[in-house]
Amino acid sequence: METLAQQLILGVTNGMVFALIALGYTMVYGILELINFAHGDLFMLGSFLALTLIKVFDLPTASSATLLLALPTIAVACAVFGGALNWSVDRLVYKPLRSAPKLAPLVSAIGVSFIFQNLGLFWGGLPLFGSAKDASAQKDVPALISNVNLLGEGAHLRITTKDLMVIVSSVIVMVALYVLVRHTRLGKAMRATAQNPAAARLMGIDVDRVIGATFVIGGGLAGIASVIYALYINTVHYQAGFQNGLYAFTAAVLGGIGNIPGAVLGALVIGVVRALCSQYIGAQWEPAVVFGMLILLLVFRPAGLLGSHVREKV
């Protein structure tokens, strides 16, 4: 029973990080029907920035009061970085292809993904991280957040400060996103544009700006996710974007691509399934189980868990 509960905690915590990445996939898809394959690698670059800032400001020696101020600042910096980078990629790469067939921006996104991975490799070779020969090696992130059990060290169940940090910060970000999408003018414009760009333009919505804003928000979420991930998993690697991105993308599809609550639900499901699988079946089976589940679900519910194909009457 305790093992099960423990795996659920692990699953939910991991799922939260996937969710923050999955939101960026799903929001861009919702508005452009583009799968932004570079999104996972954007997340990876964010984690490199987080580690760089941690090293530059020598945070391992800082007091907890300083950390309490520094870590949110790093999260904001990475969010700005992710948002700005994602926006620039849209302007430079995807926007010129807006009226091209859907395959053109998709292939370009794969290209951007490779460029980002190489940037990550280059970044990992900077003197700050040691020898350039080890550019492709995994980098350790200092343990800045304590791993003590909040329930007391003798308890059977472990919920650590780290787990709490992941869950609380993710939930704050998700609530902020929810408020933005449901209750602001920009959110209204985003929903309208996703549903019918031509009609949105007729109503006076500057569709190009809405698309730009979507890339900024999606990139910002990936930036925040990258800080949380670096502090939680304690490693950074130039290929980390690929695997995490793939799981996050799967989460977005599982929940119903284009659907914001769906991305969060899909990510939590994947997080929990992975945790249970590694406990009861074996860690080597994780990808097979997760993707097998995706295939099965898509056979029976092609639109995903929360996705709906509203049949539009004509």
Binding site: R185, K188, A189, R191, A192, Q195, N196, A198, A199, A200, L202, M203, G204, I205, S308, V310, E312
Partner: peptide
């Protein structure tokens, strides 16, 4: 028509007042 299918009737009308 090109209405917004997943917005409510009220929200669709409010979109007309967007600017």
């Amino acid at each position: 028509r090109k209405i917004f299918p997943r917005l409510t009737v009220l929200e669709n009308l409010e979109m007309g007042a967007f600017t």
